[in-house]
Simulated scan of single mutants.
Amino acid sequence: MTARDIAAGIPNAVLDDGTGLPLHVGNPIAEQRRLRAGSLVLLPREVLRLTGPDTLPWLDSITSQSVGHLEPGASTETLVLSPIGRIEHALRLHWTGDALWVIVDAGTAEALETWLTRMRFAKRVEIERPDLVVVGTAGDTAGELADAPRWVDGWPEVSPGGIRYGEPTGEPFAWSETILAPERAATIAPDRFVGTMAADALRIAAGRPALAEVDDRTIPHELDWLTTAVHLQKGCYRGQETVAKVHNLGAPPRRIVLLHLDGSQNAQVAPGDEVRAGDKPEGAVTSIAMHDELGPIALAVVRRSTPADQDLVVHTAEGVDVAAGQQLLVPPSAGHANRPPRLPRLGAVRRPAAPSAD
């Protein structure tokens, strides 16, 4: 049994063509309130299970977060970066004391498993990819699912060793993801489930980054992911030089922004739509939702130089320009944490005039 099989048994579910999971099961706006109250959502996730005495120090040495001394029951997240600091994988971690449970987005587990296996060398680490189901909630499920591995999201609080460039959006956000055997997930009453649209709306309103915001150029600073997924004082790992250099001496070339969209035009905004300032392209929409209190909202990644007070528009595939108000997440001033003052060039130093021959 799979998450798709469970989804097929949920009455009135409108299923996503790609994942086969419910987008909504009725009113997606009301489902956001249900999700905050403890309803569950079937998530498009895959799971790895890492065991062995070298698991924590080994993963600590190759990813962005400090995980070498996790306490049993602790949750955190970490990133796999390319050698030049671009995001390749995002890992949600829960340590039970005898196993490290890794939750990743659907479709990424095989590539991650292959890379981890290559990086294992002689380390005493076993890597499994079991067929499991992941359910999420913005409420409290500690009672009924207390015995299952449960990743608790730390966002928007700053993790030890991390830093936040911007201010939290102000939207309350509490999120957890629980790993279940398919047989156990199948025993949950169908009316307990809501759709993924509700989960997306809460995440977007909180300014919480995900792989949806990542392209082949993305570095963590652009998404404010140094808040929970990067430890700035730990030892070397792949991509660490870029992380340190951009934070201390440079600035991220792009920045994430929360857009409040004009819903009066009844236009369909979608991920990938161009964000413009007048006729000038500034970036692109990455995630879109209808929030139960904020209305139509989106996350977008724009150029760092885009003025923070600039009125923007989203240019849709139908050619409609939808007005979009910025809510600052990563400010244009991000970075430059330890940039030394500029010294005058030697050639620019004025020399005293030579004495006259007269």
Results as ranks from 00 to 15, higher is better:
2 T>C: 04
2 T>N: 15
3 A>L: 04
5 D>Y: 04
10 I>K: 15
10 I>L: 13
11 P>A: 07
14 V>K: 14
15 L>Y: 03
16 D>A: 03
17 D>M: 06
18 G>W: 08
18 G>I: 06
23 L>I: 14
26 G>I: 03
27 N>E: 11
30 A>R: 08
30 A>Q: 00
31 E>G: 05
32 Q>K: 03
33 R>C: 00
37 A>Y: 01
37 A>W: 03
38 G>F: 02
41 V>N: 08
41 V>T: 09
44 P>K: 07
46 E>W: 06
47 V>N: 07
54 D>A: 12
57 P>N: 11
63 T>I: 01
69 H>I: 10
74 A>P: 01
77 E>F: 05
77 E>L: 08
77 E>K: 07
79 L>F: 09
80 V>C: 03
82 S>H: 09
86 R>P: 07
87 I>R: 11
88 E>M: 08
89 H>P: 12
91 L>M: 15
93 L>G: 01
94 H>P: 05
95 W>S: 03
96 T>W: 09
103 I>S: 03
104 V>E: 11
105 D>Y: 01
105 D>P: 00
109 A>H: 13
115 W>Q: 09
116 L>N: 10
120 R>S: 03
125 V>K: 06
125 V>S: 08
126 E>L: 02
128 E>I: 00
133 V>K: 08
137 T>P: 06
144 E>P: 09
148 A>T: 12
153 D>K: 01
156 P>T: 10
159 S>F: 14
160 P>G: 02
162 G>Y: 06
162 G>W: 10
171 E>K: 14
177 E>D: 13
178 T>E: 00
185 A>N: 00
195 G>K: 02
203 R>Q: 15
207 G>P: 13
208 R>A: 10
209 P>R: 11
209 P>E: 13
211 L>Y: 12
215 D>A: 01
223 L>M: 05
224 D>Q: 14
226 L>W: 09
228 T>M: 13
230 V>E: 12
233 Q>S: 13
234 K>W: 09
235 G>A: 00
246 V>R: 07
249 L>W: 13
251 A>T: 12
252 P>C: 04
254 R>K: 15
256 I>D: 08
258 L>N: 04
259 L>E: 05
259 L>V: 13
261 L>M: 11
268 Q>Y: 05
268 Q>H: 10
270 A>Y: 04
272 G>A: 07
276 R>D: 00
276 R>T: 07
277 A>V: 02
277 A>G: 06
278 G>Y: 12
278 G>P: 15
279 D>L: 07
279 D>I: 02
281 P>H: 12
290 M>Q: 15
290 M>P: 05
300 A>H: 02
304 R>K: 06
313 V>I: 07
321 D>C: 07
321 D>L: 07
322 V>C: 00
324 A>I: 08
328 L>F: 02
332 P>M: 11
335 G>M: 02
342 R>E: 13
347 G>L: 14
347 G>N: 15
350 R>P: 01
354 A>R: 13
354 A>M: 08
356 S>E: 13
